[in-house]
C-alpha cells in the first residue's frame, strides 16, 4: 500500500502508522455526556467502503493525515493534513 502524504508525496505503507476512524478528531468537551464519549472513543460505523481515517507519517515528516480510503478495495481516494481537515 502506498499513501500520498500531502507534504512528502507518495510513500510506502511502512512509513506510516494508523489510528483508525477520523472521528478521533472530534473530541467531545469534558462536560459532554457519557454517551458522547462512548461514541467518540468506542462505537464505530466501521464501513465496508469509503472511510476517513487517521494516519501518522512517523517514518517521514511526522504529519498526521486524514486519508479517505476504501476498506474493501484499499483504494485511496484522498489525503489531507489533519490540521487542515474539517473535523
Amino acid at each position: 500500500m502506498r499513501i500520498r502524504c500531502p507534504i512528502c508525496g507518495d510513500r510506502d505503507l511502512r512509513e506510516f502508522t494508523y489510528k483508525g476512524d477520523a472521528v478521533a478528531l472530534n473530541r467531545p468537551g469534558p462536560e459532554a455526556a457519557a454517551q458522547a464519549w462512548d461514541d467518540y472513543l468506542h462505537l464505530r460505523r466501521n464501513p465496508a467502503g469509503a472511510t476517513r481515517e487517521l494516519w501518522y507519517h512517523g517514518g517521514g515528516c511526522g504529519a498526521w493525515i486524514v486519508v479517505t480510503r476504501d476498506t474493501v478495495t484499499h483504494e485511496i481516494l484522498g489525503a489531507v493534513l489533519a490540521e487542515e481537515a474539517e473535523a
Binding site: 483508525g20 476512524d21 461514541d39 468506542h42 462505537l43 464505530r44 460505523r45 466501521n46 464501513p47 465496508a48
Partner: peptide
C-alpha cells in the same frame, strides 16, 4: 468480519473496527 454491517440492520453501532 461483518458484525458492524449486520448490527447496523438493527440500528446498532458496535465498538468494533475490522
Amino acid at each position: 468480519g461483518r458484525s458492524s454491517q449486520v448490527a447496523a440492520m438493527a440500528g446498532m453501532r458496535l465498538p468494533i473496527e475490522s
